[in-house]
Every structure is written in structure tokens, then in C-alpha cells.
Amino acid sequence: MTAVQKRIFINKLALIFSTLSAIIALAFLFWILGVLVMKGMSALNWNIFIYEGAPPGYMESGLKHALVGQLILVGLATGIGVPLGILAGTYLSEYGKNSRLAHTIRDISDIMMSAPSIVIGAFVYAVIVMPMGHFSAWAGAIALAIIMIPIILRTTDDMLQLVPGTLREAAFALGAPKYKVIKDVVYRGAKAGILTGVLLGIARVGGETAPLLFTSFNDNFFTTDLNAAMPSLTVTIFNYAISPYEDWQQLGWAAAFILSMFILGLNILGRVILFAGKRK
């Protein structure tokens, strides 16, 4: 074999290996997705939306408690995290810019984005659950909000920086104060991007289980009391899945399916908005 023939042979091998890797990755993807869809669909029924949790063996058991709890938790977290994240991102892009402080905040926030979420749970447990003496929806929502802020901050910062400086100058030239320029010109210009960031942020925390385990904890019954433990889809999936009861496991799959669709929907919506915004 000449050197060139050898290279061609090695090239073929490398390409085969690389294609195989892709096939393996796809195979796992479809395996997991397939299981999720099959198990989830077969476990879905109307009872799930009508009934709350029940002891194993009961026909009239559902996920209403967890669905509502999930919405409350994520809604509260969004209410806390989004404004803070957007304001912080605004500071970085419009005031801090390239200052040392701004860069430090960006760096720390970037690391926070990949920090272990269970540690955030432990932190919130120490500063909220322990002093209050009990689990609460607030604690869970705050843990989720802490995870959300760096994501929103980062997209806001990035998106605001994309707004051309000439646009700001034009507004200043008309004598508008800075907050008005930001509100009327900069935010408006970056609307689609920020909205996408918010949706992706919600999607990200929507799938979090670990930070809720010892903050909002769990409950098998419907509740809207923000000062008490609150059920969530994710923790319910965990508890039902590790339970030895067949019917609870079924409910776990249904919850997993619903949650995935919810998160996927948010992801798709976010990207559609970004795409539509870019085209304009």
C-alpha cells in the first residue's frame, strides 16, 4: 500500500467511525424519546387532569396537584427571576459596559449558569426553609429564580448589545433621558431576543428537580398555599418512578411526557420568535 492509499484507507475508517458515532447518538435519542412517548401516551387519560394524588391502587388518582404546583412554582420563579435578570442585563449592557465590575458580574454569572442546581437547593434550604421551619412554595420558587437569573441576564446583555449605538444616539439627540431611551428604544429593539431568552430560561428551570427536592418538597394533594410544601411535576416524577407501585410509575411516565411537551413547546416557541425577529 502506498502512503496515499494508506491515507485514503485511514480517512475511510475515520469517516465510518464518525458516522457510527452519530448513529449511536441518534439511536439513544430515539430510544429515549420513543420510551417517553409510548409510555407517556399510554398512561395519559382525563383522570390525570381531574384528580389529585391518591394512594397506590386507587382508580381516581391524577396529577392535577402536580400540574398546578408546577405552574405556580415556575410562575413565581419567573415573576422573581425575569425582572431581576433583565434589570441586571440592562445594567451590564447600558451602564457597566466594559468596566471591570461588569466583566466580573458577567463571568460569575456565566459560571453560575452551569453550577450544580442541587447546591442551590441546599442554599435555599439553609436560608429559607430552616428559619421558617417548613418547606414552602416560596423556597422552591426562589431556588428556581436563582437558577434563572444568570440565563436571563446573559441573553438580555447580549441582545441589548445588538441594538445599534446610533439608535440610542438618535434618541438622546431628541433630548430623552437615559431610562426613556432604554425603555422606548433599546428594549423595543431587542424585544424578540429578550422574549426568547425568557422562554428558554423558563424552559430550563421548568425541568429542574434537584433544587426543589428540599425547598418546595412535595405533596400528594392539591394545594395553593405558598407557605406550605408544594407538589411539582418533576419531584412527583421522581417519587412515583422510584416507588414500587405500577400505577404510580404509570403516572410518573404521564407526568414525564406532559413536562417534556411543555418544555419542548417553550423551546420551539422561543426559537420561532427569535427567527421571526431576525427576519424582520
Binding site: L87, A88, Y91, M112, V119, A122, Y179
Partner: peptide, 30 residues
């Protein structure tokens, strides 16, 4: 209003640093 808005954004940005530091301190103390 300009001043208030500025302080609001700066407070939010600094909050990140505070939270991170706080997390370390709390975990360390406990």
C-alpha cells in the same frame, strides 16, 4: 427617575455577586 432606574439595574446586577458570595458563605458556615 433616571437615577432610580440606574440604581435598580445596578442593584440587580450586584445581586448576582451577592447571591454567589452568600451561597459560599452559607455552605461554608453550615
Amino acid at each position: 427617575i433616571d437615577k432610580i432606574f440606574f440604581n435598580l439595574t445596578r442593584f440587580s446586577a450586584l445581586l448576582i455577586l451577592v447571591i454567589v458570595a452568600w451561597i459560599f458563605v452559607v455552605l461554608f458556615n453550615h
